[in-house]
């Protein structure tokens, strides 16, 4: 499947043939700068992304845990999600997100 990622500099990076299980793994495996400190169990809030408007309705809503963790991130918006909690299913082919501030490993 395909992922469209706007990185921290606003550059669009197109990832083709992504086979990762979650969005966080897809982004990280591609070598983009995403901290994802806890490794994918919604414990740290450092894989924060903004989901493109068109895609928001296609995602399952965040769990209470994810919602609580999103309270700790910088600049939470309506479109905020933890990328580790987004499972890459077929219907998400072409998913477009922007890496949020605070998720970059500095």
């Amino acid at each position: 499947m395909k992922l469209l990622i706007y990185d921290h500099d606003g550059q669009l990076v197109e990832l083709e043939d992504v086979s990762a299980k979650t969005l966080m793994l897809g982004i990280r495996d591609a070598g983009l700068n995403l901290t994802a400190q806890c490794g994918g169990c919604a414990s740290c809030g450092t894989c924060h992304v903004y989901v493109d408007n068109a895609w928001q309705a296609k995602l399952k809503p965040p769990s209470e845990l994810e919602d609580a963790m999103l309270d700790v991130v910088e600049e939470r918006r309506e479109s905020s999600r933890l990328s580790c909690q987004i499972e890459l299913t077929k219907d998400l082919d072409g998913l477009t997100v922007t890496l949020a501030p605070g998720s970059a490993f500095e």
Partner: peptide, 10 residues
């Protein structure tokens, strides 16, 4: 109690 944890961390 994730909200409690986050509040405590802050």
């Amino acid at each position: 109690r994730p909200r409690e944890h986050i509040a405590a961390r802050r």
